[in-house]
Design a protein around this nucleic acid. Structure first.
Lengths: 347, 347
DNA sequence: TTGTAGGCGTTATCAG
DNA sequence: CTGATAACGCCTACAA
């Protein structure tokens, strides 16, 4: 209907500047072997036509798609409240680095994942929700698909990963509690389902907690719960009921901890006067809470940022012919004492 | 170094199946004019080679990039806590529809935005944080760039948008309060900066509140604050101090409301016994709060979902030659009574 | 129903 | 330093 003038091509620019397309191409790609005079002439032409090289063609000719994806487990969106920040962190890392960042929440299976790379839809991917045994990781390792994991497997592989030091986080919380006089500490770990699935956070938080408690010569009081706030609240109450003199509860997830606050309060227990609550949580959630949550901060945006950075670096390396080295980044746990914890006043 | 066998092309498939490439192409694209026999032969070949058509080449030949982008204002990530859901909602809508969804948080200016489309990096885009006068919208309208807005401008244009009924939301909260006996209601609106910038939510919430209050013949008590919880808390206290018999405060943003709860409580005021608090908030934030927040739910994921759906529909239409019609979707406000509001007990 | 040939817009190679 | 020209891998008239 409308005039729909076709977008100018590199030929139009070449014509206007009275040079060949190869010269234009050189200018576009900032090559050095162009005389200053022609370069500025070409640039002028580009400007006048407001020409922009068609990315699709560049990619085809360059045999690179310049696209990375975050493969987002579709079912994941619901129960986890912090993980959206992964996305923004990753987007920020790719932004400006000349990579297209796309998030795919489609369900994934082996053929689909393979096709993703074979079709060159993506050059590299960020994998999340890694389990101890993970077919995606095995596939990526076997077929040399450039992937970076947020999380780890139990298996050996050459893939890079970034992860949060969950053991350290759990230990830090116990240490802090012990240092402030607590001796009877409960732990609401992640559900059996998650443990069985081999989800790293689940197992490593549990292990970290366990080891810390034993190291301090304390008794282990631990119960599993899924991430639902209500369930977590029930779990906390269960601990309160079954453990003598319980003075602190450790949680592994912000919303769960909030559920506990609610449950404890409904039982007439004050936090932190009667019970301290520590948890892993994004600072965002921790600070929104009232009282604000003590514990270790989960740096989700940074994890996404780092993962994307590693991935991009890797792809750049590979493109330049240098062998990409695998990187392992373990983000350290930092304790933040806010309002839900207090030293135990020995009576 | 390694063997790096080149990925099979459509030619390899054609050879293996003893047909021509066009036939393979037809099969790939599900055309009807292929005999069942050849089709299955081709499919077998595709399977054996585990061939996947190279998207980049398809796009070049098809003159479509099949990519949509969410142009995410970079500075935006911080202050707003709910808007990440936009992304997932949009991703879900594009997923499975054969569009690549990419989120770009790079700073945007006119040449860059123009280049985005001219280079065919993206076929369509979702724009957020729309202001009353928005250069992006004008540019898109002028140059016929397929964009869908989350939000609205004051200006006329043919672009589609999806938005939340902020006026309705504000009115619903006032109505509810009035119906439950409240007569002296305070309103903590968005900051002057946001109002001056012409941000839709800021102005429309204010207007909706104002009209509702006047409609009920009440006095208007309103104060502006930016979205920082502390500032919002101060604003709420200011209202408490300056308005006689204030029994309810209306906020426009989850975290702000949480800041108010905190401030009110520090002043010894109980919520909702002494003061009711209503706010616009994502249900996620509202329910995490303790007490949970009454008010209207902000459906951010749905907004993203709808925006992406409209955009994709539009692009599909355009590709099929039918004139894309512009759509306007106004998501209605729904009131959720939770724990921060209570009927006013007349003493 | 199938095959042939030209084109999509760039980049890269290799002469000049 | 610059210019032809062949890829890149697929799609789509048009012909057979």
């Amino acid at each position: 209907m409308s005039t729909e003038e076709p977008a100018p091509t590199i030929f139009d620019v070449a014509d206007l500047a009275s040079v060949s397309v190869s010269t234009v191409s050189r200018v576009i790609n900032g090559r050095a072997d162009v005389s200053a005079a022609t370069r500025s002439r070409v640039e002028a032409a580009i400007g006048r036509l407001s020409f922009a090289p068609q990315v699709t063609a560049q990619r085809l000719a360059g045999r690179r798609s310049h696209t990375v994806a975050m493969l987002f487990p579709s079912a994941y969106a619901q129960h986890s409240n912090h993980d959206l920040d992964f996305v923004l962190g990753a987007a920020e890392a790719t932004s400006g680095r000349d990579y297209l960042f796309n998030v795919a929440s489609d369900p994934l299976d082996e053929p689909r994942m393979r096709a993703l790379f074979r079709s060159r839809l993506v050059e590299g991917a960020i994998l999340m929700q890694i389990t101890a045994q993970d077919w995606r990781v095995e596939l990526a390792a076997r077929e040399q698909l450039p992937c970076v994991l947020i999380g780890r497997t139990d298996t050996e592989h050459p893939l890079s990963w970034v992860d949060f030091d969950f053991e350290g986080a759990a230990a830090a919380m116990v240490d802090h509690l012990v240092m402030t006089g607590h001796r009877s500490i409960g732990f609401v770990g992640r559900s059996h389902a998650m443990l069985d699935a081999g989800l790293g956070p689940a197992t490593r938080l549990r292990r970290g907690h366990e080891q810390a408690v034993l190291r301090h010569g304390l008794e282990l009081h631990h119960v599993a719960s899924d991430l639902d706030p209500l369930a977590a609240g029930q779990a906390a109450l269960h601990l309160v009921d079954s453990v003598d003199d319980l003075s602190a509860v450790v949680a592994t997830h912000g919303p769960s901890a909030l559920g506990m606050l609610r449950a404890l309060r409904s039982r007439g227990l004050r936090v932190p006067e009667d019970v301290s609550v520590l948890t892993v949580a994004t600072s965002r959630v921790a600070e929104l809470s009232m009282p604000s949550l003590s514990g270790t901060d989960f740096p989700s945006a940074q994890l996404g940022f780092q993962a994307a950075s590693v991935l991009v670096r890797q792809l750049d390396d590979r493109a330049r012919g240098v062998a990409p080295r695998t990187e392992h980044i373990l983000m350290p746990a930092r304790l933040s004492v806010r309002e839900t914890s207090a030293p135990l006043a020995r009576s």
